[in-house]
Structures are given as structure tokens and as C-alpha cells.
């Protein structure tokens, strides 16, 4: 199949950048979207041009490295799918596809489609962990966790920190990411001792990084490749209210 690509090219953080058109004539519908870019890059290299820079790692939908906004949607049009798991069979022959980097002030463009998502690391470092002495793993079921809580924690823990929620949010907010981490740790017994301080510190870190506020439009939950539900943001708000009204 033949595809026309409009790809955001930007030489570096300070370059203005622009969309440039490319044509790929030998795309196959069984290719993943990243393989399409691989094919394009091979051609660009042979022609002596600069290949398109993009993030990728595991290519099996679990690492959160791949990003990019495809036809206006983070990770493309396929529901619950990362860019690496998106296949060309979801596009039609001759289609023009626009590819842009995730857009957020807190995610500065490094080059082309690569953005610096270090802000997420710093939010995690501010409280997205439990402080536990290391040692041998405890016996399974030594700490009982009720099934509904375990399920909810697991659903939230599915967040791979890719940043699609930020890319989709009209306010550039990372509330879905934040809510996922708060819910994931807050539903489990191990997360309780630091529950209040965690939410206060992570919310502050989130805001200091320059992410916007949540207006509950729900764009994030639709874009999320791991289908993190919107109610984790409600949980985040509830935990924050609890932490700020009971702290001494």
C-alpha cells in the first residue's frame, strides 16, 4: 500500500520545526506503525537524508517509550493500542497521515518526534513509591488484599507512563497519570503509611513541572493505551482533600 506522511521535523529544542511531506510506496498492511517509520528511515538514509527521530523500545506495548500523535490522536486512532502495536491495516491505501510529537510545555521536543518526558520521572521521584526495607520477598498472601481493591490497584498499575494523557488533554494536564499512581499505591496496604504525604508531594511536583489543571473533559481516558479510567482523577482529588484537611 502507498501512504503519504506529513511528519513534524525539528532539528533540536530551539529549532522552530515544520511538517514535511513524505511518500512511502512499499508499505504493507501487516507492518506496525513504527515499522513504517523504519522503512521510511532506511530510504532516507540511502538518499543521504536525515532519518526521522522517534522514541521506541520494547515494541510490544508495555514499556511506554513510543509516543507521537497520529492524525490528531496520541498513539493513533486504534483504541487501547500503543503506536508500536498499531498496524497499517487500520489505514487505507493512499491515505495522508499527519504525525506530530506529543505537545506539552512540560514535554519539550528533543528532536522530530522525540520529546523529553523526564517530568514524569520527577513526579514519581517526588512520592510515587513505597519506602520499604529491601530483603527477601515476603510470602504471597502474607498481607491480605480484598479482591476489589486488588483489581482496582491493578487497573491503575497498568499505566505505562507514556504521556498520551498529557498529549490528549486540552489543558496539558497529567492528572490521569497522577491519578493512576495515587490509586495504584493508595488501594494497597503497603501504600497506606505514605498515602497523605504522597498525594501532596506528587500534586505539587506535577504543578511545578508546568502541567495544567484538570477540567474533566475525559480526553485522557479515551487516548490512554492502557484504558486507565477517568475515576482515578476523582480518587486523586479525594485523597488530596483528605490529606490537606487532616494534616497537622
Amino acid at each position: 500500500m502507498r501512504l503519504n506522511l506529513r511528519i513534524w521535523r525539528q532539528d533540536g529544542p530551539n529549532d522552530k520545526g515544520k511538517l514535511i511531506g513524505y511518500r512511502v510506496d512499499d508499505a504493507d498492511e501487516d507492518m506496525s506503525f513504527l515499522e513504517l517509520l523504519d522503512v521510511l528511515n532506511e530510504k532516507l538514509i540511502l538518499d543521504g537524508d536525515e532519518p526521522v527521530a522517534f522514541d521506541h523500545d520494547c515494541r510490544e506495548g508495555i514499556c511506554g517509550a513510543c509516543s507521537m500523535v497520529i492524525n490528531g490522536q496520541p498513539h493513533g486512532p486504534q483504541k487501547a493500542t500503543t503506536t508500536c502495536q498499531l498496524h497499517l491495516r487500520h489505514f487505507h491505501d493512499g491515505e495522508t497521515i499527519t504525525i506530530e510529537p506529543f505537545r506539552a510545555g512540560a514535554f519539550p521536543v528533543v528532536r522530530d518526534l522525540v520529546v523529553d518526558r523526564g517530568a514524569f520521572d520527577r513526579i514519581i521521584a517526588s512520592g510515587g513509591y513505597i519506602s520499604a526495607p529491601t530483603g527477601a520477598a515476603p510470602d504471597a498472601h502474607a498481607v491480605p488484599v480484598p479482591k476489589p481493591q486488588a483489581d482496582r490497584a491493578f487497573t491503575a498499575a497498568a499505566c505505562i507512563g507514556c504521556g498520551a494523557c498529557v498529549a490528549a488533554c486540552p489543558n496539558g494536564s497529567a492528572s490521569l497519570f497522577l491519578g493512576a499512581k495515587i490509586t495504584h499505591l493508595g488501594e494497597l496496604p503497603q501504600g497506606q503509611p505514605e498515602r497523605d504525604s504522597r498525594v501532596v508531594r506528587m500534586v505539587q511536583a506535577h504543578d511545578d513541572e508546568g502541567f495544567g489543571g484538570c477540567t474533566n473533559t475525559g480526553e485522557c481516558a479515551v487516548a490512554c493505551p492502557k484504558e486507565i479510567p477517568l475515576d482515578v482523577i476523582s480518587q486523586l482529588n479525594r485523597d488530596y482533600l483528605h490529606a490537606t484537611t487532616t494534616r497537622r
Binding site: 490528531g72 510545555g105 508546568g210 495544567g212 489543571g213
Partner: peptide, 22 residues
Amino acid sequence: LTRRAHKARPVKYAYRPPVKGS
């Protein structure tokens, strides 16, 4: 909050159709 939102997305998408937001 509106000012923060605009600062949090300084560069607009060239193409971004409305997806979910009512």
C-alpha cells in the same frame, strides 16, 4: 487555570479533531 492551561500547551497541534470532550 486557563492561563496555566495555555502555558502547558504552548504549541498547538497542526491537526487535532475533537475526540471525546462534549
